[in-house]
Write a protein that binds this DNA or RNA. Structure first.
Lengths: 253, 253
DNA sequence: TAGTGGTCTAGACCACTCA
DNA sequence: GAGTGGTCTAGACCACTAT
């Protein structure tokens, strides 16, 4: 057969498409610009819409695109670097403007949380819900679990409800001598409640940062923070963190 | 039609499927067990294969499943915790068995790397390729960029080729006084070469850890490590890192 | 109401693994 | 060669946003 070039390893169409689009984004589009709609793009490249969508999904996963139902697909700005655990021995900041307390409940925690906290499954635990905003966009939703025994001086009277109670718990927590912290990062998909708070659809890819705060020789608090994977770059360590935007990515094929 | 329950917020089928499958995995399957094939599963749940696949993809993203072409879908073991930057002031280990040197070249680096290294774009940089294995599985592929000026005493004679040269570069690097390191974690998709090394298909989700090593008041080396997102939990900090496996995940709906 | 992305279907063929 | 997951098509309808 007179195929022009016999590809030894035939690249999937969507993969090739992704490369082409990626280069077009670099050279022909600027941040915030709206792309043609999916039906037009698919027709232009001569593929089915599902195939085009596979390419767009990857580009969205890599933080190059932003898609919103009813609106369209736009070129995403570079990922924002969010500091995570810069200070090895700092409590989750109660004040400052990065985290905003949303709510606080007192109840028995999920079994997995109780295990990580090394509390009895029936011991009541404060669950503080916070959200983090950066550059005007919501970037993370956090659940902070604080065993009642970590904040013994907190009385229900001090903390009547909601955000006020959350702040009271955080204030009490800071009185403890923090000895260290452990973190872990893994990929997850947004639960319905987190997705809503992050302005994404359920199932959207997120980076889950689990942090254990150690004080008095035990786990004094546990934070499970869910970051938008499409828009965030988590930075650790002394200073700001490295930014490498690989630019036009050439496929080795 | 006599639909049993009129869902006020109709959950997508694939989302509901994912929940059902997730529960089945918890209660009826054990690690390593093979699931029925996709065509059978789709028929059993009364959905198109594409819809079923959407659910499976999510579960794979969350590290619950492992799929291999030509073989089948199996229940994945819990994610392995891999230590990343446990020691704030440690060079990338040259010895030890976690990282294995694969290759080493000396050439002008990509522009983005040169910028992060603060070298002239034409300055030659050693590119050390290493792979990391954990529990017998490849978990990460790394490119370590070391400017020639960081290892001035290295001569071509010391390092004839391949892995030997890579080890020589690492040895020289360790002689510098390390002042600190910066890391950043973000979501990416595997390039073709990394995918091959990680035993995944191109485009597979990966956690990209970019680390800058500081010595002599400048960036002495830059590491770009690509971790399998499906099998890895990256741990930072003093000790091992937290493990929270949420178990059966109840959807708030 | 028009236009967007999100979901879903019922097929088809391909690339790969393994007996 | 049989069976698996991976890719692709050409439709359809739905949920959401803006006007």
């Amino acid at each position: 057969m007179g195929t022009t070039q016999l590809e030894s390893v035939p690249e999937p169409k969507y993969w090739h498409l992704k490369t082409v689009l990626s280069e077009a984004l670099d050279s022909e589009f600027s941040v915030g610009e709206i792309l043609p709609n999916e039906r037009d793009l698919a027709a232009r490249f001569g593929v089915a819409r599902a195939t085009l969508r596979q390419a767009l999904e990857q580009l969205e996963l890599e933080g190059r695109l932003q898609r919103r139902r009813g609106v369209g697909t736009t070129v995403a700005p570079p990922r924002v670097g969010v500091a995570v655990g810069t200070q090895q021995h700092a409590w989750p900041e109660a004040t400052g403007d990065v985290w905003q307390a949303v709510d606080c409940t007192l109840a028995a925690p999920p079994a997995a949380v109780a295990a990580a906290l090394e509390t009895r499954p029936d011991e009541a635990v404060y669950t503080v819900r916070r959200s983090r905003v950066s550059h005007g966009q919501p970037v993370a939703a956090e659940l902070l679990y604080v065993p009642e025994s970590s904040v013994p001086d907190l009385s229900a009277i001090d903390a009547p409800s909601g955000p006020a109670r959350a702040r009271a718990v955080l204030r009490e927590l800071e009185r403890l001598q923090l000895e260290g912290r452990d973190s872990a990062v893994e990929l997850g998909s947004a639960r319905a409640d987190d997705a809503k708070e992050l302005d994404r659809l359920p199932g959207a890819p997120v980076l889950v940062v689990t942090t254990r705060f150690l004080a008095d020789g035990r786990t004094a608090a546990l934070s499970v923070a869910t970051y938008r994977a499409d828009t965030c770059r988590l930075t650790f360590g002394d200073s700001g963190g490295v930014e490498i935007h690989q630019g036009p990515e050439r496929q080795a094929s």
